[in-house]
Amino acid sequence: MGAMMIKLSDELEKFFAEGGREVEAALRKVTAPDEEPIANLDDGLLYALGLDAGASAQGKRLRPLLCLLVSDSLCGRTDQALPFAASIELMHNFALVHDDIEDGDEYRRGRPSAWKRYGVPHAVNLGDYLFTKIFAALLLGEGAVPAEKMVRFFALMTKTLDHTHRGQALDMNARFERIDLAHYMRIVTNKTGYYLAAPLVAGAIAADAGAEVEQALQRYGMAIGPMFQIRDDLIDLTHGKGREAVGSDVCEGKRSFLAAFVFERGAANEAARLEEILNKERSETTPEDVAEVLEMFNRTGAMAEARRVCEEMTEQALVEIDGLPEPLRGRLVDVTRYLAARQA
């Protein structure tokens, strides 16, 4: 399944295109300055979100579109889900701006990352400003979304931010460690599990779907989020991720699923050599180093195991949504298969 190219249905493609326009309009509304624009800030917001005139890519908008999809599937409308959808996209991009600084990634979505474009001090401030817009987006629902739902949206966002930052701390703490697979899963569960589950749950809250549906979507998100990250680890070494080259994670010294596999199950000399390469400064990591690591990941079975785990987590995610009402279940099955087979 992992090697197949799977496309979304025409119906979902149309829904996501329309939903993307809704999200973009909300993002533009919440990021529009109330006073004279400030250089390196207001233009930086648009740059980070891919809304500036020079943008050729805006990112997948996966999380906000899932939020809208759940709400539409359950109640036939998206208006009460839109504020959370916009806020989760702002959260995602706030995290990416700071993440690129922390990782030293110079490219994002095929062009210079925010810190490379504006400098580190401005990018830190830009990320902080994006953080404030998370809550401004939630307040787009004021007067239109019932107060009890607004409170739940704020609580859900707070919980999601908490887990994401804890996961990022675990990730940074692991940069020079020989982590095992259990530790890797703890990192990605916090970093990607909770904040892929959150928009799904928010869509159910918006639709008044009830606790049983919310809990099923939470479990689904907690399976599909780590799968998404492991798939990212594979894509980095096969197709790249909109960064400067294939193997950016190796240059960064990232402790990916593949690295954790070799540290835990590889021979002592292989683990030592991998650690030596990953611990190099980014500027000292050569294309030959990246090629050696890729060959090691293939030879040791790390790549095959990552694909196997992705398939296993995909099937577990599908089990969690099996009892959901149509058309939500069928739509999420299609999305899940698509995400599991993606190449970018």
Rank of each mutant, 00 (worst) to 15 (best):
M4L: 15
M4T: 05
S9R: 05
L12V: 03
E13S: 02
F15P: 02
E18S: 11
A25T: 02
K29Q: 11
T31P: 15
T31F: 11
P33L: 15
P37I: 04
N40A: 10
D42Y: 09
D43V: 05
L45W: 13
Y47D: 00
L49E: 04
L49C: 11
A55K: 03
Q58D: 00
R61T: 06
L62E: 05
R63F: 10
R63H: 07
L66G: 07
C67I: 13
C67R: 09
L68Y: 14
D72V: 12
D72K: 13
L74S: 09
F84W: 11
F84D: 03
I88S: 08
L90R: 01
N93E: 04
F94H: 15
H98Y: 11
I101E: 08
Y107S: 01
R111L: 02
P112L: 09
R117N: 12
Y118I: 10
A123W: 00
N125Q: 07
D128E: 12
Y129R: 06
L130S: 01
F131C: 12
T132L: 05
I134V: 15
L139A: 15
L139V: 00
L140C: 12
G141N: 09
A147I: 11
V151T: 02
L156P: 01
T158W: 00
K159N: 04
T160L: 02
H163K: 14
F176G: 03
L181Q: 14
A182P: 04
H183P: 03
Y195K: 08
L196N: 08
A209I: 11
A211S: 11
E214H: 13
Q215R: 15
Y220R: 11
G225N: 00
R231E: 12
R231G: 12
L237R: 11
E244P: 01
A245N: 15
A245T: 13
V246H: 14
V246I: 15
S248Q: 13
E252C: 09
F257E: 03
L258D: 04
V262N: 08
V262D: 07
G266Q: 05
A267K: 15
A267C: 09
A271W: 05
L274Q: 05
L274A: 06
I277D: 14
L278A: 07
T285F: 03
P287I: 03
E292D: 11
M296C: 01
A302M: 10
R307I: 06
V309P: 06
C310I: 09
E312V: 00
M313V: 08
E315G: 00
G323D: 10
L324E: 14
L324A: 02
E326T: 13
G330Y: 05
G330R: 12
D334K: 08
V335K: 13
R342V: 06
